[in-house]
Amino acid sequence: MNRTLRKSTLAMWILAPALAILVGAVTDALISDAAPGEAEMRAEVAAWGLTDLALFTEARYTRHPSQADRHAAFQDHPGALEHFPSGALMPPPPHLREPTGP
């Protein structure tokens, strides 16, 4: 009896774990509950009327981008360039780019 491992079987031995990793990732995403603290954060947002995430706390217009006024990035003088690198990572809020509104 020929006991040599066939090359196609070897390929399946390599492919099966790779596929298992993919299926594992997808299954993990499907069965995972919300990350800890999500219910708590929703409650805090509703109770305190929070409007923004505390991702960038270095300037008022990066801490609360949704509440920034039109001149936020030029707060020191009209031609002032942006101080903070976050400005390169976040655009002005869409509603500030619309032509209407006060």
């Binding site: 990732a25 960038f56 706390t57």
Partner: peptide, 29 residues
């Protein structure tokens, strides 16, 4: 992204802020 806290993007997230939030993202597909 979901189990190691996305260390490769930590620098991009950090900006210049001193207070950096620690948070976990919910796995999703």
């Amino acid at each position: 992204v979901f189990h190691a806290g996305a260390p490769l993007f930590a620098g991009v997230m950090r900006g210049w802020s001193v207070l950096q939030p620690h948070f976990a993202l919910t796995p999703q597909v």
